[in-house]
């Protein structure tokens, strides 16, 4: 490790009663790195996500950000889910600056910054609208701006584009990459979509269930910036095959039943 990790999980695990949702996990994310996490349901993605976010206590282990122990402490990372979780009684602007509001009130400068964000990403005409008046894609953009406005170095995104149509999704992915390249944030991006995982990430973390664990971490050696055409390059397809193979071989029930006899 030539570089101190921005975010590190050290022996993090979590059990719920008899069930091991996440077995002991090590993960180090470099500053400015884009990590995707893929895996079938039950592989411990969400558990890991919630532990990093500080809203779930790990049974063992530590979460470090910049070498500082932030285990079970919230407020150190930006955080976004598939559900936009916008507050219906707050306008677009007031939702974007929610982080500041919750900590005692948004200043004029913070509100101006929120307005600038909304304008840059095509919501300039909706600053005073309530979320109910927006489409799904617009709401999700507001949710992402809310995460950006919190100025955390580490951003956790849990299938943020999962509910969008494929066109919107592709343009949101490219937008996210441009934001990430400009702002040098460290991103952990959880998704079901293997194409999306490879297209966005420097490394793909492949997780498998029973018990939930990191199965392998795969480098994505495709240079940036990545045009949409990189989705069809041979390296891309080879990576996709490898990840599909890993997930399929470990998740299929047939394989599980066969295992004791092997």
């Amino acid at each position: 490790m030539e570089q101190a990790p921005k975010l590190a999980l050290m022996g993090v695990s979590r059990t719920f009663g008899d069930l091991t949702a996440l077995s002991s996990t090590e993960l180090a994310v470099k500053p400015g790195e884009f990590i995707s996490v893929v895996g079938p349901s039950g592989c411990g993605k969400s558990t890991m996500f919630n532990i990093i976010a500080g809203v779930l206590q790990p049974s063992t282990g530590k979460v470090l950000i910049d070498g500082k122990d932030v285990t079970n402490q919230s407020g150190h990372v930006g955080y976004m889910l598939q559900k936009d979780l916008l507050l219906p009684w707050r306008t677009v602007l007031d939702n974007i600056v929610l982080g500041a509001v919750l900590k005692g009130g948004a200043s004029r400068a913070e509100r101006d910054e929120g307005v600038a964000l909304a304008r840059r990403y095509g919501l300039g005409d909706f600053i005073n609208h309530y979320p109910a008046a927006l489409s799904g894609g617009m709401r999700q953009r507001v949710a992402l701006m809310r995460t950006l406005a919190m100025h955390h170095d580490v951003m956790l995104l849990d299938e943020p584009f999962g509910a969008l149509d494929s066109q919107t999704r592709l343009s949101m992915q490219q937008w996210l990459l441009s934001v990430w390249e400009k702002e040098k944030r460290t991103i952990v991006f959880v998704t079901h979509d293997i194409d999306e995982a490879i297209f966005l990430a420097d490394r793909v973390v492949v997780m498998t269930p029973r018990p939930g664990r990191i199965h392998e971490i795969i480098d994505v050696p495709i240079e940036r910036p990545r045009p949409v055409s990189s989705l069809t390059r041979p390296e891309f397809v080879a990576l996709k095959q490898r990840i599909l193979g890993t997930i399929y071989n470990n998740a299929s029930p047939a394989n599980e039943e066969a295992a004791p006899h092997a």
Partner: peptide, 25 residues
């Protein structure tokens, strides 16, 4: 929504500001 409560907690909201800005409205 439990996810909203988790979100605002991850944003560093105190119990009071969670009540004021999320539960009360």
């Amino acid at each position: 929504d439990k996810d909203v409560l988790n979100l605002v907690r991850s944003m560093g909201a105190s119990k009071f500001s969670t009540f004021r800005h999320v539960k009360l409205p």
